[in-house]
């Protein structure tokens, strides 16, 4: 963006009309729907002083919910990173019947309403469900226990890693692999030393997106979680419970804390990408 010499101008002159109207409407709408409501949240949370806010966050029930939410989200995002890479590899490198259907199915978790995923996974994983009944004889409980939460979060985050790794793998130059092969590297060494380093930034982005999404996820988790306070209660549910008890301040403090974490993760990833020179923003 180059400013014209001399006077400060908001935008560069253009023959096209509609800049003022477009920007005005965009900002008006954005303020009304996003910015004013978000500032209401921050103001509500700041009604509590630091000490009381800390007391809310440090209470055993809230602390347990944060620990469970972040741990389960991290495990789910990690599983998704590994299988996301496998699925991206499958879709980019192999040709097989039904590949297009598989490609489309990867996006199902984006398209399927979370409540539907929630009830369906709960029914599958319960002790009498198709999957749950296979594990029940061994005393392994999936639904209404932490593994169920992880499974729901895996479902929700599944597309992120695939969709960030896929384009990078698609653009990866095969000549590099051929060069590695002529230099004597076998397939495994080529993968670890040549391909993986190129995919790692995309995998990291996918991991962060899946993680951030998982920390806020509600619909798909609450049906399968069991929701026992301190044991299988996630942060978004705790916010809902506080709201139902009309403890709006407590709910706001928890919400701001959880937003702060997810925003800082996304910001860290943005910075990292910029440093890796992958940021292709314009304007």
């Amino acid at each position: 963006m180059t400013a014209t010499a001399g006077a400060w101008r908001l935008h560069r002159w253009s023959v096209l009309p509609g800049f003022g109207l477009g920007l005005g409407f965009t900002l008006f709408y954005l303020s009304l729907i996003v910015l004013i409501p978000l500032s209401a949240l921050v103001l509500k949370a700041s009604e509590l002083d630091m000490a009381s806010a800390w007391r809310v966050l440090a209470s055993p029930r809230v602390f347990a919910a944060f620990r469970l939410t972040f741990l389960a989200s991290a495990v789910a995002a990690l599983v998704n990173s590994i299988f996301g890479l496998v699925i991206a590899w499958l879709l980019v490198r192999y040709r097989f019947w039904g590949r297009r259907i598989v490609d489309a199915l990867v996006d199902l978790p984006f398209a399927l309403p979370t409540a539907v995923a929630g009830v369906s996974l709960a029914a599958l994983m319960a002790g009498n469900g198709w999957v749950g009944s296979m594990f029940a004889p061994f005393g392994v409980q999936i639904a209404y226990a932490p593994p169920g939460i992880v499974i729901a979060l895996i479902f929700v985050g599944l597309p992120f890693v695939v969709r960030t790794v896929q384009p990078v793998l698609q653009d990866f130059e095969p000549e590099l692999e051929e060069a590695a092969a002529t230099l004597g590297a076998d397939r495994w060494v080529t993968f670890i030393r040549v391909i993986f380093p190129a995919l790692a930034p995309a995998m990291l982005t996918g991991f962060a997106l899946a993680f951030a999404r998982a920390t806020g996820e509600y619909g798909s988790v609450i049906f399968i979680a069991g929701n026992r306070p301190g044991l299988t209660e996630i942060v978004p549910l705790l916010i809902v419970i506080k709201l139902e008890e009309f403890d709006y301040r407590g709910a706001s403090v928890i919400a701001v804390a959880s937003l702060a974490v997810s925003f800082s993760i996304l910001m860290a990833i943005n910075l990292l990408q910029r440093r890796l020179g992958q940021h292709r923003g314009r304007g």
């Binding site: 920390t215 806020g216 549910l237 937003l259």
Partner: peptide
Amino acid sequence: DVPFSVSPVISGMLFLLL
């Protein structure tokens, strides 16, 4: 992009606060 990174529960809560 902000709404994409706000938990759905928090999104609804904003309007409850207003």
